[in-house]
Amino acid sequence: MVERTSWSLSGALRGMFAKPTIDEQTWEDLEDALIQADFGPDVTDGILTELRAKVAKYNTTDPTDLQRMLREGIEERLARLDSTLTLSARPAIVLVVGVNGVGKTTTIGKFAKFLRGYDRSVLIGAADTFRAAAVEQLATWAERAGADIVRPQAQGQDPASVAFQTVEKAIKNGIDIVIIDTAGRLQTKSGLMDELTKIRRVIEKQTPIAEVLLVLDATTGQNGLAQAEAFIEHAGVTGLVLTKLDGSAKGGFVLAVQEKTGIPIKLVGQGEGINDLTGFTPHVFAKKLVG
């Protein structure tokens, strides 16, 4: 079982890079490997064309050169955008959005812990008033992270008002960083997407928003791009968070997302533990993908 499930791009590539020369089979295998890592047919074609041109240019037949060029190509594509979080405002407001079940609440818990590690005071706003027990789930994470939480006063309260109260409290108490959780919503639900716009507007009445983070599940396929586009339009996303990278999914679609939308990946989640959240480093990500 374990053997079958542990398919990895680097594993798939290792075989082909071990060959003495680059032949048609190498290209085919490479294409398969990229598609299986969820890069999508378009990006895969792009990468392949680029690589073919490079191989022709440098006149190489050595697969290890190809591997290096692939790694560098991906790294370069990923590194084009600045992945640092801008949290210098006080309070710095971070709004977390995404579709259902991608791990928004968990990410917030880990992110709060991460920030507490740098000794910043953190206030969490539980503006997911829709899903059953979402507030309790968030409260548990807040407690683990050592952060304060603002709860809705009633079940089904307008999420925008919870967000407003959270920001208000943060300003009054001089909190460094505010993280606001929102209910998961599919990007096709225009009513819910408008609700996000409203939350944003209401917060901005008090203070500008520092970061809007879109959480994407690494297991997502090509629909990730549609998600990103819709959330960018309605919530003004400034950064991506890629979660569940500890599974067998490679999340190759983020490359397409980053390229098509110009929004950088800023955080990476790789586990259920509270410390399993790291900043995004193109080098490490590319290395993991390609080996």
Partner: peptide
């Protein structure tokens, strides 16, 4: 999840 990508195989 209907949105899952290539990982559907291994999962």
């Amino acid at each position: 999840d209907a949105m899952i990508g290539q990982d559907a195989v291994s999962t």
